[in-house]
């Protein structure tokens, strides 16, 4: 559906994106991640035809973004970082205008507008001037304009930025609802969002692609270490005994009854620790496993990389 090959964009001497290649299949919901200034928005702008790359190619539905820009633009709904709104128009008139601009047939215009208003829960404010709406509503109008032409591909650049937690949850539900109807590319800083809605993740850092994989594979990327948080009733230092158990890498006694134990990532070690606690009648009160989640992967891939870069 989307094929990006060796994409490069430079601003003078600075590389905004450097040799990025990836492929997105039909129906995928892709999370585009990266720290600020990593090149996420630039990549999105190139795919939408808003910006030209310095070199490389991008194809959408088989059409080259630069050779057939009009065909590509017909198939894409794009929400930029700042929603492209005409503040002096009403919500309904604005969506009608966008539908017509996107060359939707006259017959389908009205039904498309209705459906976009319904999906984004804007029916109550359809006759209001956009200027007078709150930020959350403006963002929803932005999402509605991306949806209104029923495009095959939806590109949403930080759709939840500036929204309150309830609105964020609503947008997440909306994206979940849109799954299957569109191929979606989503950039955000909220990693739990990505975990909740995406089936594929692309991480860009300093203009380079450092990860392109499915959510399941990324969760398998966990480092071969797990941290156990243990709380016992027995007010006695058990650190030495814990260290004796095979597979335990380090023990940190947080307070007289609580420990953070770093173990090799296998179930046998966890079982051995539990058995030891039961045998010593230490009284297990609480045990939790700190799993490597997406945030850890993201941080280890991006921030560790920048530290390495600094060292170099």
């Amino acid at each position: 559906m989307i094929q990006v090959d060796n994409l490069v964009k430079t601003y003078g001497d600075r590389f905004a994106i450097n040799n990025i290649s990836f492929k997105i299949n039909k129906g995928d919901v892709v999370g585009l991640l990266g720290p600020n200034g990593a090149g996420k928005s630039t990549t999105m702008k190139i795919i939408t035809g808003l910006m030209s790359p310095t070199s490389g190619t991008a194809k959408v539905c088989g059409f080259d973004v630069f050779e057939n820009p009009l065909e590509v633009k017909k198939r894409i709904g794009y929400l930029p970082e700042n929603p492209p709104l005409y503040l002096d128009m009403t919500v309904e008139n604005y969506l009608k205008y966008v539908t017509e601009l996107k060359k939707v047939s006259i017959k389908e215009c009205a039904s498309n507008v209705e459906s976009a208003l319904e999906k984004t829960q804007l029916k109550d404010v359809r006759h209001r001037i956009i200027k007078n709406l709150s930020k959350g509503f403006k963002q929803r109008v932005g999402i509605a304009q991306a949806l209104v032409s029923r495009p095959e591909i939806l590109i949403l650049d930080e759709p939840t930025v500036g929204l309150d937690p309830k609105q964020v949850a609503e947008i997440r539900d909306l994206i979940n609802e849109l799954k299957g109807q569109h191929t979606i590319i989503l950039s955000t800083h909220i990693l739990s969002e990505v975990q909740a809605v995406c089936n594929k993740i692309i991480i860009i850092h300093q203009g380079k692609l450092i990860l392109d994989d499915s959510i399941e594979n990324i969760q398998k990327l966990r480092q071969p270490q797990t941290q156990l948080n243990i709380k016992v009733r027995l007010d006695k230092d058990l650190s030495f005994e814990f260290k004796k158990i095979s597979g335990v890498l380090s023990v940190n006694q947080v307070n007289p009854c609580s420990y953070r134990i770093q173990i090799e990532d296998d179930e046998v070690t966890t079982e051995a620790i539990l058995e030891f606690i039961i045998q010593t009648k230490a009284g297990l009160l609480e045990m939790s496993v700190n799993e490597n989640n997406l945030e850890d992967v993201f941080l280890s891939l991006t921030y560790n990389k920048s530290e390495e870069a600094v060292k170099i």
Binding site: L70, P83, Q145
Partner: peptide, 14 residues
């Protein structure tokens, strides 16, 4: 200034 220009640039118009 209002960034609505992005809408025109990403619409199928020349």
């Amino acid at each position: 200034k209002n960034r609505s220009f992005d809408l025109l640039m990403t619409s199928p118009i020349t």
